[in-house]
Design a protein around this nucleic acid. Sequence first.
DNA 1: GCTATGCATTCATGTAGATTAACAAATTGA
DNA 2: TCAATTTGTTAATCTACATGAATGCATAGC
Lengths: 179, 179
Amino acid sequence: MDTLKEILTLDSNAKTVHFKKGKILQSAGANTDVSFFVKEGLLRSYTIDEKGKEHIFMFASKGWLIADIESQEFHQPAELFIDCLEDSEVVVFDKRCFKIANLTTDQLQRNTHLLSRRIAVLQRRVLMLMSASARERYEQFLISYPDLPNRVPQRMIASYLGVTPQALSTIRGIQARKK
Amino acid sequence: MDTLKEILTLDSNAKTVHFKKGKILQSAGANTDVSFFVKEGLLRSYTIDEKGKEHIFMFASKGWLIADIESQEFHQPAELFIDCLEDSEVVVFDKRCFKIANLTTDQLQRNTHLLSRRIAVLQRRVLMLMSASARERYEQFLISYPDLPNRVPQRMIASYLGVTPQALSTIRGIQARKK
DNA sequence: GCTATGCATTCATGTAGATTAACAAATTGA
DNA sequence: TCAATTTGTTAATCTACATGAATGCATAGC
């Protein structure tokens, strides 16, 4: 929970807030002046395309940061929605607290490491989306996030994987029959 | 070119090397103790899947860093190949130079910004792969990287987009006829 | 300069996964 | 507690894109 300690020391305005399941914390089109740190519970970020279809970009459980980094970096309105999949305790803090000049070297280093790991996860995600079949992506997902299938509806896992709920159901059916 | 200056002051072993087009700088399976900064020319990183098919992860032209961040972060053998698409001048430096304790705050901050932008680019890439058709991804690519079509063979653009060269050719044929 | 290899295009066919729909089971809410 | 909604499953059809193959051009190597 080092990240949490840092945030609290960095941004005196950061506050822990309790949100109910279903609460929308950020909507596409809004400005993106805050980020979220999950103390307890489960959040997700997602887009809605022109056809009204949801595409889940990431899940964030205990200990994770979640934010629309693309929009923050390019100073544009949010592209992602962020909402609660469970009742959650969330630290809401100003994204700029990571850019204040008087961060300690230690804090910046730890931050660098967090960002690098996020890049690593995204690198894998891109390569999987480009080269692996839906079944392979699902199997990899189960290994990477073994607790999520118990916590989120299957259709959201499908959305994260980039397939329809029907396709994922079929994959699971085939796998179950193989045993 | 601030990045270059930083690298040279940080890693006294960093050296500029000239490579010929086609030169492979890193192979999958090798250890990943170095990163590459492109002073001039064009590099790319890519995987080769079980069927022997290439999937281009990124292009790096003048001013870009390229490395297998996933493998570096998780201390695993490289998953990506890196090679030269043009005769190139490249600064080869130890990745650990970014982790040395005595970086200045300013250097770390600039590094943080570089990493954030990379995340931003990857976020967009993931969302595109999940929600956009091949044609839409191609049109977006032309906007984001207008110079690349003149510098790399079309089949590599197809590989970056996650489609076959034939599919991209068909898309271009349709677009040309529409005009 | 000529051959060989690689590249882009086009077409015929195959297929993973989307779409649509119908139904059963689980969850939610008054 | 019971109706209403959401979720997961299965199946029939459709479609974007893959695969494989043939052809014409460009490029590179000898």
